[in-house]
Nucleic acid binder design. Structure first.
Lengths: 158, 158
DNA sequence: TATCGACAGTTTATATATGAACTATTATAT
DNA sequence: ATATAATAGTTCATATATAAACTGTCGATA
């Protein structure tokens, strides 16, 4: 269904490029709301899942990731990372650990609780993702990804 | 460029459907950041632009839109609409007006200041949007829109 | 080696977003 | 006609997000 109709717009979206942009926004919003609902049953937020998922797959278990690295990977700024880690640490999902040899860094590591949650949840979440996105053929997904990559590339250039 | 590389991920994204989802998220985030930067020069936020744009095109000038209608069109909940309107009203962009015949509603209307800003900014913003999204051919944009519509449709069904 | 610039992280003010509990008003069903 | 549903909006607690100003630490260099 056209976005205009989904949102109950009386006047149409006049510029096709704008319609594409709004489709990206709103689809992302809806996917995020759905992810938030999904993770609620496991007592975590969607953002906390993404954070823990990065720590699980992108970090050596013994070293963790620094807050600056997490910010780059999550595409959020450092002050936001501080507050994300504050809450995740308070919830017992991660810990801040000193990095020997450079006192500027915090290494962020999953706790055993955080690790266990990822191990419990990840496969079920991926099944959900496959169910939702899998309405598209593999070749269509590849085209979608490629188009979004080109938009981001273009943003860096213009 | 692949998202993995853009974000500096060491381990790849294993599930193609998940890669697509993350591409939608991150592209939307980057577009939003860019819009925010763009509107800063006009003293408004990207969210305020979207709000005012709806009031400009989707409402009769004399009647405005209710907060519930705005919430449906912006895909945000009513408590968020309350705070958006609070700030936009404080900034002199919109006003709350009583609706005759039903005291539950607020009609939200653009002020002349709000109207003027939209008239000043909209064309320039659309040029930006065309520049960023226009890296894709019209036919590719149509396919992108159609794929995102199908994902949303599928979310409503599963 | 003293300093200066770069980098990591925190704090504060503010905007955006949700859900739950609330008030007020209107529509409906008996 | 009245009790009940539904609807519109607000308030409060909380999460996520940014920018700007700040502290602390490290590296480069003069």
């Amino acid at each position: 269904m056209k976005l205009e109709k989904e949102l109950g717009l009386k006047a149409g979206i006049k510029v096709t490029e704008h319609e594409a942009l709004l489709n990206i926004y709103y689809t992302g919003d809806l996917l995020k709301k759905r992810a938030r609902d999904f993770f609620t049953q496991y007592g975590i937020t969607d953002v906390q899942f993404n954070l823990m998922n990065l720590l699980y797959y992108q970090a050596e278990e013994k070293t963790g990731l620094t807050q600056a690295e997490l910010g780059r990977m999550l595409l959020v700024n450092r002050s936001n990372v501080t507050s994300l880690i504050d809450r995740a640490e308070k919830a017992g999902l991660v810990v801040r650990v000193d990095v020997p040899g450079d006192r500027r860094y915090n290494a962020i590591r999953l706790t055993s609780k955080g690790r266990k949650i990822i191990e419990d949840v990840e496969e079920r979440y991926m099944d959900e993702v496959k169910k939702v996105i899998g309405i598209l053929e593999k070749s269509e997904i590849d085209i979608l990804i490629r188009s979004l990559e080109r938009i981001r590339q273009n943003m860096r250039e213009v």
